[in-house]
Nucleic acid binder design. Structure first.
Lengths: 243, 243
DNA sequence: CGTAAGATTGACCGCTATCAAAGAGGGTGG
DNA sequence: CCACCCTCTTTGATAGCGGTCAATCTTACG
């Protein structure tokens, strides 16, 4: 279920685009971190592997001692209400940070959607480290801003789009993650279940299936298997009223 | 419509609670900024007054040269889709930062809901300033994290709650802003229209009115005037499945 | 080969978007 | 000072999306 492991080359990457165009070209889609900076960060962190799907990484409400950097795999961050409903607040992909806290407790739970590898930073140490490393702190700041944009995009989708459109946007978002989308065949391998998708886009698993039917009926996707979809990305974008 | 003005005492405050309990007590609900730090920031900024409701502060898509700190008043950040629908992504209250950008352009538009006063920071200068002032940068980082939490809370509401519950949450959020809520009488003065509320909680103005009826029918609120509501906060919280 | 989890389909109904129209205020010009 | 107008708010009627319950199909796995 859980094992510690060694760090590999180039593992420590933070996925984010800066709000302003970079002056001295950032690596596309990632925060610029020098080898030395990566090493400094690695020294603070512990590497942990979660090898089975559904593994709990942390639980909503627990004392939040750590911040997590996802190196490999997919993680879902979910919030459970008293009524028992679950809302998935975000899916995390390699290069994403998670472990949002308030008053020292995790706001959401995190579970492995696929087997995954994370770097785990003790927040107290990380906090001190960042204050004495302004350029790295800037990277974390940029990541946070990136996360705000992501959440707001999702908010717009939830507020203004019907289920088929929300699904279209979700599929397009997924297709941005190379490891799960093959540009040659345009086939997306979805790592999560219909239930996960439903809890993310604010609907039910049945409605996700029906929305898949809608998209397929319009020729925007083709179901190879339930978890493998051929996407017509341009048409999906047009359908979702995006550019 | 727009005027420049002088800075006043204690105007520069950033509203945010840190994810971890403060070690050396932060001013409740605000980032700790020393007088010197405030002065340094003020030196970067220009003060601008927007005196009429509905004033454009900036427009979605414009080059994003500035970051804004709201000193006084209420601002709405909205995103307009091709279809013409508007989603209000956030309401900003005194102490909030706004001006989210991507690729150097504003992602949303900002308009004054009430007359308001803002500090306007040139992003290039601010960016450089923050890198050489790690403790202030930390404040901005904490604010960004705070903003992520806010967006996620809204996301949960949109995904899992019906309109009356979303409205209840919205009213409770508003009641957290002293200037608009009188603890003695428990009366909330709403600065925005039904349309604004609707576009924020993802519904229509008509449904906002109906949701007001629902809440009033259950005795959770009482309409003094359309814009002045007496709140039963404990009951509202219970109704919204919050604590 | 049996079982369980995931995916799909169908039926039904409630919430809420939409269209339409009527009250309520507040501000402005006569 | 008053009447008008425009915006905001409210109410009513209707239709449709999508939630829910139930059952079936598929697939991976023990």
């Amino acid at each position: 279920m859980r094992r510690t492991a060694q760090r590999e080359q180039g593992d420590i990457r933070i996925r984010a685009v800066a709000p302003w165009p970079a002056e001295h070209g950032e690596e596309a889609g990632h925060v610029e971190l020098s080898a030395a900076e990566q090493a400094d960060l690695a020294r603070l962190a512990e590497v942990i592997l979660f090898e089975t799907e559904g593994s709990q990484i942390f639980l909503q409400g627990q004392p939040a001692g750590f911040l997590y950097l996802l190196a490999d795999g997919v993680v879902r961050g979910s919030h459970t209400l008293h009524a028992g409903d679950r809302q998935i607040v975000a899916f995390y992909w390699p290069g994403d940070l998670f472990g949002l806290a308030q008053a020292g407790a995790y706001v959401n739970s995190a579970e492995a959607v696929t087997p995954c590898k994370v770097y785990r930073f003790p927040v107290r140490k990380l906090d001190a480290f960042l204050v004495s490393n302004p350029s790295i702190q800037r990277g974390f700041f940029i990541k946070a801003v990136h996360e705000i944009r992501t959440a707001q995009r999702q908010l717009i989708a939830m507020g203004r789009f019907d289920v088929p459109r929300r699904l279209a946007i979700f599929l397009l978002d997924c297709s941005g993650h190379e490891h799960y989308f093959d540009p040659a065949t345009q086939i997306l391998s979805i790592p999560m279940t219909r239930y996960d998708i439903a809890d993310y886009i604010g609907t039910s698993a049945e409605s996700v299936t029906r929305a898949m039917n809608t998209l397929e009926g319009r020729g925007l996707i083709r179901r190879v298997t339930p978890r493998a979809l051929e996407l017509k990305r341009a048409d999906l974008k047009a359908f979702a009223d995006l550019d």
